[in-house]
């Protein structure tokens, strides 16, 4: 069975309120007055731009210190990786793993997989179901990378003006926060419908077995 896309019928889904409108008759949604688009305008270009900015900042985010601990024994600068190493060495393996995944693996994986999706959409060579699943995963996990920013914020606030040590935020936090925000924005700028547009010119059939399932409880 071949799926009919709304754009083929001249219909557009309002991105704000979810109303289905005739795109030829209405420039704006008749219910909420948001501008109607069949696809997000210039979605791939905007997504690439934000993604490239995130790539550029990924290096300083991991290389620059995210916090500086000043104590009697001198100044210690911690990057994200050395923070993970510290947790690992002090015996909190589970937590070290969580921080490593959330702060190092997830951001990189996110950037790489969004690039993969963008490239394959542009090449019109898409495994649509896998791509759609990957994109949905990106939307869910992106936020968890903010973890390290919060850790630094709490540490900085607590370890202040004591005899033992003071902790200050390093420039890496700024870069890191920017990577998280930029990659979230890049994910949002991308229009997942483009995956299916690219796939339908390529392989229109093959969806038969799933077509009867419409609800799941």
């Amino acid at each position: 069975m071949k799926w009919v896309s709304a754009a083929d019928c001249g219909l557009a889904l309002c991105e704000v309120c979810g109303r289905v409108e005739n795109a030829a008759e209405h420039a704006c949604c008749s219910r909420c007055h948001a501008p109607l688009h069949r696809r997000k305008p210039r979605s791939i270009e905007r997504s690439w731009a934000l993604l490239l900015a995130a790539y550029v900042l990924y290096l300083p985010a991991n290389l620059l210190p995210i916090m500086e601990t000043r104590s009697l024994f001198g100044v210690q600068r911690d990057t994200i990786l050395s923070g993970v190493a510290f947790l690992w060495n002090s015996g909190s393996w589970a937590l070290a793993l969580i921080v490593f995944v959330a702060s190092v693996v997830v951001p990189l994986l996110k950037l790489l997989s969004l690039s993969l999706i963008l490239v394959s959409v542009q090449q019109r060579n898409v495994q649509a179901r896998q791509c759609a699943r990957l994109y949905r995963l990106l939307e869910v996990i992106g936020r968890w990378s903010m973890l390290d920013v919060y850790v630094v914020a709490v540490l900085v606030a607590l370890v202040q003006a004591q005899s033992l040590a003071t902790i200050a935020a390093g420039p890496g936090v700024l870069a890191f926060g920017a990577v998280v925000v930029l990659s979230m924005m890049a994910t949002m700028a991308f229009d997942p419908r483009l995956i299916w547009d690219a796939a339908s010119t390529h392989e229109p059939v093959e969806m038969n077995r799933e077509s009867k399932r419409t609800t799941k409880t």
Binding site: W3, A7, R129, A132, E210
Partner: peptide, 26 residues
């Protein structure tokens, strides 16, 4: 909203749960 497939709406009365797009699983 994810794959732009034109679908028939499931009647509201039909129990609980979520309606899933049969094409893309959204």
């Amino acid at each position: 909203h994810e794959c732009d497939a034109l679908l028939q709406e499931v009647p509201q009365a039909e129990g609980g749960g979520n309606a899933i797009c049969p094409r893309c699983g959204a």
